[in-house]
Computed example of a mutant assay.
Amino acid sequence: MNKLLFIVFAAFSAACSDTPPLPADPQATPETRALYRNLFRIADEGVMFGHQDDALYGHDWKYEEGRSDVRECCGDYPAVFGWELGGLETGADRSIDDVPFAEITRLLCAAYGRGAVNTVSWHPQNPESGASAWDGKTSTAVSSILPGGANHAQFRLWLDRLAGFFVGLKSADGTCVPVLFRPFHEHTGSGFWWGEAQCTPDEYKALWRFTVEYLRDVKGVHNLLYVYSPDLYRDAEHYTERYPGDEWVDVLGLDAYHRPQDWDFLSGGERMLSTLQRLGREHGKPTAFTETGLEGIPDTAWWTRRLLPVIRGKGLSYVLVWRNAHDRPTHFFGPWHGHASEPDFRKFAANREQPVLFESQLPDMYH
């Protein structure tokens, strides 16, 4: 569908809807509200393809202006760019992946200027130990940063720094750039200090609600959409066990990596994404496959033999694969020019059975 037809369709859909979708932030900027509505609509056209850190570095390169492993494989940038803010909470000028936050800001805004969608993850350090987000040895880190906790003032400072980053995302004309913010992800697992084994459901819900309320109502950050993204889950009850409520969440997501030794990607992915599709309809939320991938991509037909069947017909707004590390030769999840899976990725990108959308194929997502 071209941009003109998309606009006509959008106008018709809005006219026919008694309750147009509204984000969790009633004061969200016009561009953020438009992005939210278009996350619903884009799923009728195809699944946007995303890649973490795509504009920053790739399999064997770093900070080369305009480069993109995805673009070098299929001729187009991803429709969705993922970025990481871990480290910002400490006052550092570089992320946990050693990327200057100033560079993230510049390239994130540039992606918006081209019409792409931006999503941000955050791996904050453990507030009790000062170790990484992966330090899950304690069961009191979450309670310590809630109101009344020993580390609550520290957490507010962390959120102050996040707020400063988000409100500083400005386009060339001064518009606040909308961002899909995905905090405290993969909480149905126990890999992080906010995970299932590290806090109670009520503590997790309180953490989520305080974060949204503080950024939105105290700091006046109005360019965010909030993405809820558990790890592997058993059923709908497990998925929603720590769900903070529809008024606090904008997008329902899933993080599920293909780890053949742990679970079957085809059957498990079909089950979880079908459940996600149903939950999206029940809760009135767009859905996304917020993180996935097969590290090193040893299956050269993984894109069409594994990923495509799993996302087909699930009504997803986007699917994002994780980063291609420039300094770890086997740590990559996206395609890169010269890899054995590159021909299959081109088939994946060009297939018509389940359209996969890249940057130049997007309608105007912000109006």
Rank of each mutant, 00 (worst) to 15 (best):
R346K: 10
T32Q: 11
W248E: 03
G86Q: 05
I145D: 07
A34G: 07
L294S: 06
H51D: 06
Y57C: 06
H367E: 07
G168V: 04
F181Q: 01
P343V: 07
Y36F: 14
A116Q: 10
H59R: 15
F348A: 09
G269A: 09
G245E: 10
W336G: 06
R242E: 01
H258M: 03
W336K: 07
V218C: 08
G136D: 12
V221G: 00
R71E: 12
T175A: 15
E295F: 09
H331D: 13
V80M: 05
P230G: 02
L279T: 05
D264T: 09
Y233Q: 01
V319D: 00
K170T: 13
G86V: 09
S95M: 10
N118H: 02
G113K: 06
P355G: 04
R234Q: 14
A340C: 05
W134D: 07
E213K: 12
A92I: 02
A301H: 11
Y233A: 08
D235I: 12
D160P: 03
S317Q: 03
G75Q: 05
G130M: 08
E203C: 13
F155S: 02
A172C: 05
R306E: 15
S143D: 08
F49E: 03
G189N: 08
F289S: 07
S267G: 00
A325G: 02
Q261F: 11
E65G: 05
T188Y: 00
P343L: 13
D173F: 07
W193E: 11
L5C: 07
A153S: 13
N2I: 04
Q52K: 04
A350K: 02
Y239C: 11
E203A: 13
F12S: 13
H185T: 06
R182K: 14
A131I: 08
N151Y: 01
D235Y: 04
G284D: 01
D235V: 08
H152P: 08
R209E: 08
G82I: 00
W134P: 04
G338M: 11
R94V: 15
H187G: 09
K285L: 06
K137M: 11
P26C: 05
R71V: 03
G75Y: 05
A288I: 00
V80E: 06
L22D: 10
D97N: 14
D93G: 15
N2L: 13
D93R: 13
V212N: 01
D255C: 11
E65R: 12
R278S: 12
R346V: 15
D53G: 01
L180M: 14
G268C: 08
L5T: 15
F12W: 14
R114I: 08
R281K: 14
L88A: 01
Y228G: 00
C176R: 15
L85Q: 04
A325V: 10
G280Q: 11
D60A: 15
V227E: 09
Y57W: 15
D44C: 10
S68V: 09
G87N: 06
D250Q: 03
G174D: 07
N351E: 01
A172W: 06
G113T: 00
R259M: 10
Q52P: 11
H238V: 09
E103I: 08
Q261A: 15
A79Y: 02
C74S: 07
V120G: 00
E270A: 15
E65T: 11
W303M: 04
